[in-house]
C-alpha cells in the first residue's frame, strides 16, 4: 500500500480504555475496583461486558447501567478495595432482591465486582 501518512489510536474498545485507566490508577498507588455486567434479562441499559472502574478516592469511569445502580455498585466496590472477596450483585425488580435498588426499565442485571490486585 502507499504511504501511510499518519496512524492513530482509534478503535480501542471502551472496555480496553477502562482497563488501561484502571492500571494507571493502580500505578499511582490507588486502590482500584472493577465492576462488570455479566448477565442481563429483559430490557437493560448496558450490554454484557460493560464495565465501571472505581478508585478509593471516588473517581469512576464507565458504567454498568443508565445510572440507577451505580451508587450501590460503588458501595460494594469500596468493600472489595478494602479486601472483601469479589462479589456477584443481582439487581432486579423483584421485592425479594437483597438490594433495594431496582431497575426502572424493568430488567434484571448481574454485576461482578472485584478488586484489581
Amino acid at each position: 500500500m502507499g504511504r501511510a501518512v499518519a496512524s492513530g489510536e482509534s478503535g480501542m474498545s471502551e472496555e480496553e480504555r477502562l482497563l488501561r485507566e484502571a492500571l494507571a490508577w493502580k500505578r499511582e498507588g490507588r486502590k482500584v475496583a472493577i465492576a462488570t455486567v455479566v448477565s442481563t434479562w429483559g430490557s437493560s441499559p448496558r450490554p454484557v461486558g460493560s464495565m465501571l472502574v472505581v478508585d478509593d478516592r471516588g473517581r469512576m469511569l464507565g458504567s454498568v447501567s443508565g445510572g440507577c445502580i451505580e451508587g450501590a455498585v460503588v458501595k460494594e466496590a469500596q468493600a472489595v478495595m478494602d479486601g472483601a472477596p469479589p462479589k456477584l450483585l443481582d439487581f432486579g425488580v423483584s421485592d425479594e432482591q437483597a438490594w433495594e435498588v431496582g431497575l426502572a426499565c424493568g430488567g434484571r442485571v448481574q454485576v461482578w465486582v472485584e478488586a484489581l490486585t
Partner: peptide, 24 residues
Amino acid sequence: FATAERFPNVDLVDAWPDEAMESL
C-alpha cells in the same frame, strides 16, 4: 486532503483507493 492536522489520531493513507482498499 489526508493530513494529520485535518484528521488527528486516525490512520491516514494517501495511496489510490483501489490499491489502499486491496491492502486493507
